[in-house]
């Protein structure tokens, strides 16, 4: 099984690559000798990223009223480690354009991911010492394994979807995938994260968002993404009925110390209010 997944992901190695700007900023952020000016310089060398960065900096995401018109200003108000998250978040959708599929419209796929990212970010702001931008990026990436499966194993992916449509009970897609293939999109996504050498927090969110109790280190972030994934489905379906979506792990809210009844409607409503602007910024709509 392990080798299968590794081979599967190696097979897309040439089709999906991490954006150069992320790799370079990532190196600078990890380098104690670098400063904000270095990061701004690297960011400014990528025109597409510059445009997105300024869009984000001027959006309601950062609640600024003054105009941010230079990369240096944007980097200083957003913060260096957040810039690294954004470099990944704003380019991941285009990174996967080389991996098309006929099962699910890319637009629908990324809309769900974006809802998850927004929900995770909204929840993270309720917690102390939680990097909301990093969790946002984790939400955006949580299902990337799906895109590999849809592209490389279209028949099995199709069978998984049909199994869900044929099953009267709520059958989450990862369980359908396990029944059909013996592994699921979280395993595949984790392998991709490993090959990309993504930060451990991100790879844990990708790998354990359906299995939070197996999380080695970043339980809080993984739990945020786990809950955000379900709330994202509710936001998409415009429902407040938890029976319409797969269950949230019974201990998840307790892990975060948040109140479900208070959070669920608040997060859904806010994510629905933010989705249109977020689509413009992150999906280039």
């Amino acid at each position: 099984m392990e080798t299968n997944i590794a081979e599967l992901v190696q097979g897309v190695g040439n089709l999906v690559t991490l954006p150069d700007v992320f790799i370079r900023i990532n190196n600078l952020v990890s380098d104690p000798n670098s400063n904000i000016a270095d990061i701004a310089k690297v960011a400014g060398q990528d025109p597409a990223f510059t445009v997105r960065l300024l869009r984000v900096a001027n959006s309601s995401f950062y609640g600024r009223s003054s105009t941010i018109d230079t990369v240096a200003k944007a980097v200083s108000i957003i913060g260096t480690s957040q810039i690294r998250s954004l470099a990944l978040a704003t380019s991941v959708a285009s990174s996967f354009e080389g991996l098309p599929n006929s099962l699910v419209a890319m637009e629908d796929f990324w809309k769900h991911s974006l809802y998850c990212a927004l929900s995770a970010r909204i929840l993270a702001k309720q917690l102390r010492g939680c990097d909301a931008d990093a969790v946002f990026t984790a939400g955006l990436l949580h299902d990337i394994g799906e895109l590999v499966i849809f592209n490389r194993l279209p028949q099995q992916a199709r069978d998984s979807l049909l199994l869900i449509q044929d099953t009267l009970e709520e059958l989450p897609i990862y369980q359908a995938e396990r029944q059909i293939m013996g592994f699921d999109h979280a395993h595949v996504g984790a392998e991709l994260a490993k090959q990309w050498k993504l930060p451990q927090m991100l790879s844990e969110c990708i790998e354990y968002h359906h299995d939070i109790h197996a999380t080695p280190k970043y339980l809080r972030e993984v739990t945020l993404v786990h809950i955000a994934n379900i709330l994202a489905q509710m936001a998409e379906l415009r429902t407040v009925d938890i029976d319409d979506v797969p269950p949230i792990d019974p201990s998840a809210w307790e892990i975060l110390g948040l109140d479900a009844d208070e959070m669920i409607p608040m997060v859904i409503e806010q994510a629905q209010a933010e989705i249109a602007e977020a689509e413009k910024i992150f999906l280039g709509k």
Binding site: S102, V104, K111, H112, L237, R238, T239
Partner: peptide, 28 residues
């Protein structure tokens, strides 16, 4: 804009309608 799963009990008239995610649009 949603696909739906509809479950109907003719004896009682009870219905359960579940909206399905856009993930299912293309296969449907």
């Amino acid at each position: 804009v949603f696909p739906r799963m509809v479950v109907y009990f003719p004896l009682t008239g009870k219905v359960r309608v579940k909206r399905l995610r856009s993930l299912h649009n293309n296969t449907i």
